[in-house]
Simulated scan of single mutants.
Amino acid sequence: MRTAGMPATGNRRRAGWLALIIWIVALPAAALDPGVHTLELEHDGRQRQALVHVPDDAGEPPWPVVLNFHGGGGHAANQQDYSRLHELGGREGFVTVYPDGTGGILGRLHTWNAGDCCGHAARENVDDVGFVAALIDRLIETLPADPQRIYATGLSNGAMMTYRLAQALGDRLAAVAPIAGIIAPTDAGGTPVPILHIHSRDDPRALFDGGLGPPFPLTRTRVHHPPVNASLTAWAERNGCRPARAATDEERTWRGPDTEHRAVRLSYADCPAGATVQLWQLSGAGHVWPGAEPALTRILGPATEVIDANAAIWAFFRERRRAAAAATSTD
């Protein structure tokens, strides 16, 4: 036999459970555990993904994040295994993210839409800028990443993509460090972004002095590369630097087996605080990630240890924050 008070008790219990559920759902998401995670998201009708390396000792979140874009014909795991930037991230306490491009077969041979280049992504006008913007949003939400310390680097087609992001998402990136690939800015304004460019004068594929590069392996596809010095000068002028030849800051030499490689670090003059532009100009090296193990040398040219790209990139990034560039820049 039910009493008159029982329905009210049941209602109170249901209300209590509902309040508990609402409270649990409202709790902030926990930071990702240390280790490697595959982050997936849908953008523009495509399923996209990235590999996320959270170091064991990253300190308290929000964390700095370095986006590392693979070259044309590569993929996220390939860039991870080649550059090994996440190993430095494990020691220095930053999160490394390897995004995946599109196209190819069996999860390989991906490209980025950097405008005029490259491959499937450019032909299909894939919205890679929108994908990266959505990826940054997800990283801020789920890591959580520090919005003031989002950085980007990449190799070859990934370097070109990095420059496209510097122009399209300059208000979201604290600094960029492209390697062996460049595009000139297509606008004279926009948010200034600190740039460290790394490129060999003897690069056999992304030609330092510009021109039509050799065909991609097993294809007839060729890419016209703009000259590095003229393009970087355009970026420096866009950042508000004085339009003058870059001055030498540092020189290095590395003697390998039967070879000698050189590196000169150049800086553009009178850049505004937080908008510095620098170039590591190498000689003797190929189309490579400096400091990485040799790979496909017949196609890419010689590997080099004249500089460690990972160390140079992080040294450039770690002093720069997007919202406080003037206070933290080492210009």
Rank of each mutant, 00 (worst) to 15 (best):
M1I: 06
R2D: 07
T9H: 08
G10R: 12
R13V: 14
A15G: 07
A15L: 11
A15I: 02
W17Y: 10
W17F: 12
W23E: 13
T38N: 12
L39T: 03
L39S: 11
E40H: 10
E40N: 09
L41Y: 13
E42T: 15
E42M: 08
D44C: 03
R46K: 05
R48F: 01
V52S: 09
H53Q: 04
V54M: 15
A58Y: 00
G59Q: 08
P61S: 04
P64C: 05
L67H: 04
L67Y: 09
H70L: 04
G71M: 06
G74M: 08
N78C: 01
S83N: 11
S83W: 03
L85T: 05
H86V: 00
E87V: 11
L88Q: 11
G89A: 09
G93S: 06
G93K: 03
V97K: 09
D100R: 11
I105F: 11
I105Q: 12
L106V: 07
G107Y: 13
R108G: 00
L109K: 07
H120W: 10
A122D: 02
V126G: 01
D127F: 02
A133P: 02
A134L: 11
I136N: 09
L139Y: 08
A145R: 10
P147E: 04
Q148S: 14
R149G: 07
I150E: 08
I150C: 02
T153F: 04
A159H: 07
M160I: 00
L165G: 12
L165M: 14
Q167H: 12
Q167R: 14
G170A: 09
D171C: 01
A174P: 01
G181T: 12
I183L: 13
P185E: 13
G189T: 01
G190L: 07
T191F: 01
V193C: 03
P194H: 11
I195V: 11
I198A: 02
D202F: 02
D202V: 02
P204T: 07
L207Y: 09
D209Y: 00
G211C: 06
L212A: 06
P214Y: 00
P217E: 14
V223P: 07
H224N: 09
P226F: 03
N229H: 05
L232A: 07
T233S: 14
A234L: 03
A236Y: 08
N239E: 07
R242A: 15
R245I: 02
A247Y: 08
D249E: 15
R252N: 08
G256S: 07
G256L: 07
G256R: 05
D258Q: 13
E260D: 11
V264E: 15
S267V: 10
D270E: 15
D270G: 05
A273I: 00
V277Y: 05
V277G: 07
V277C: 04
Q278Y: 06
L279Y: 09
Q281G: 03
L282T: 06
G284S: 04
H287E: 07
P290V: 03
P290N: 06
G291M: 04
G291C: 04
E293L: 13
E293H: 11
A295R: 15
A295Q: 11
L296G: 03
L296N: 12
T297E: 15
L300R: 06
L300V: 06
G301C: 02
P302D: 12
E305R: 13
V306M: 05
D308M: 04
F317T: 08
R320V: 03
A325S: 14
A326C: 10
A327K: 03
T328K: 00
